[in-house]
């Protein structure tokens, strides 16, 4: 009973605080899920410019990127927020993987070092988020420990979550599997690259916010 009263009070307080300050919406997930592609898509849709560079090589985003004051509108509703694109969270980083992707040793080592710092920053920033969009590659197994740890941490911090099952343009995409893995959260299948199902994505974002 006391817990329920606490939750009601916290929810009210959090909603009130979110309106007072600039709302921060974070993009989280493992590397190569399409976080920056989605960030670019949101920025292109609403402010007409890109946010960051994308690559097929993992850990392209190695620093926290912030785009301030994005204003989105849908069905008479309006939402203004700061969008935070975070480096992909991983439990291991081997510079040799970057060499295999065609980089020179020095460049690969530098990228690996920056990537480790990026993961640390992503975890540190978790506490600052008001809403988190977890971006997952819907063509790969969603039951990875990194996904479970990210979502578990958001749950523990009572941060609202929207799961974007990205890359639905690919044949191997399995949204149902993502939905089955995280049944307690709203899941929306999108293709950030081609802008597929983005209207549905914004609707879901309004629901979560």
């Amino acid at each position: 009973m006391i817990d329920k009263i606490k939750d009601i009070f916290n929810n009210f307080f959090n909603k009130f605080m979110r309106k007072k300050k600039d709302m921060k919406i974070g993009l989280y997930g493992p590397p190569n899920g399409g976080k920056t592609t989605l960030a670019n898509r949101i920025c292109k849709d609403w402010i007409g410019e890109d946010m960051g560079s994308v690559s097929n090589v993992a850990h392209e985003t190695r620093e926290i990127q912030i785009k301030e004051q994005i204003n989105i509108k849908s069905k008479g509703k309006e939402l203004t927020f700061n969008l935070i694109d975070t480096p992909g969270i991983a439990t291991k980083i081997d510079y040799e993987e970057f060499i295999k992707a065609g980089m020179k040793e020095k460049e690969a080592k530098k990228r690996a070092k920056e990537a480790t710092k990026g993961v640390i920053d992503s975890i540190k920033w978790l506490d600052d988020m008001d809403i988190v969009i977890v971006v997952l590659d819907s063509t790969i197994d969603p039951y990875s420990q990194v996904n479970i740890t990210i979502i578990g941490n958001l749950q523990a911090r009572k941060i609202p979550v929207l799961i974007a099952a990205n890359k639905i343009d690919l044949k191997k995409s399995k949204i149902k599997k993502v939905e089955a893995a995280f049944p307690q959260y709203p899941v929306i299948g999108i293709s950030a690259k081609y802008g597929k199902s983005m209207d549905g994505f914004y609707d879901k974002l309004f629901e979560v916010a």
Partner: peptide
Amino acid sequence: KKEEEAELIKTTMEEI
């Protein structure tokens, strides 16, 4: 704990 899992990943990254 979930927070400890995140801390384990963070500490791991610091030591790579």
